[in-house]
């Protein structure tokens, strides 16, 4: 992260292109992560409830805690790196805006909450499935929006 702070973007086209490249990749990562979670746990309340709690009528077993915890463990790691990179570059380019601070806070909180809420939903009630769904989709959309704002600033200034 140190190079992001010290290099002057106006004189470094290589750094501008490198930052655009990584943000472009992360934008597609965030989009594909939504699709991946739709396959793994489901992205509607019925599928999610079936994954977490099973369905006795259709003889579907609930997901094993080992499997779910492994998914949460990986999600936390991937979220940390994705959000760190997006947030650092966003701060670098939009540091004078008042909203920057709040957007970064919201992005980090949503990224941390969504994996934890999935575990909470597994151990408690289906009510948390709704909360997880909202926080997961919102977090990913916010990350993608911030990526687009970065790309706009980098490529179309």
């Amino acid at each position: 992260m140190k190079f992001l702070v010290t290099k002057d973007l106006a004189h470094t086209t290589l750094l501008v292109n490198l930052m655009a490249g990584v943000v472009f990749s992360l934008f597609f990562y965030l989009a594909l992560d939504i699709v991946l979670h739709a396959y793994v746990v489901g992205l509607d309340v019925t599928t999610l409830s079936t994954t977490l709690y099973g369905n006795t009528e259709e003889f579907i077993e609930p997901i094993l805690i080992d499997t779910l915890l492994l998914q949460v463990h990986i999600d936390l790691f991937m979220s940390l790196f994705t959000i760190m990179i997006v947030a650092s570059i966003y701060i670098r380019l939009h540091s004078t805006k008042v909203m920057t601070k709040w957007l970064v806070h919201i992005l980090f909180i949503l990224g941390l909450l969504s994996p934890i809420l999935l575990l909470v939903a597994y151990f408690t009630s289906a009510g948390f499935v709704y909360v997880w769904l909202v926080s997961f989709i919102l977090g990913h959309c916010l990350g993608m929006l911030m990526s687009l704002l970065i790309l706009k600033r980098l490529l179309f200034k």
Partner: peptide
């Protein structure tokens, strides 16, 4: 400017 913002991440 605004180096303190990096404390958040």
């Amino acid at each position: 400017k605004n180096l303190h913002l990096y404390h958040i991440p």
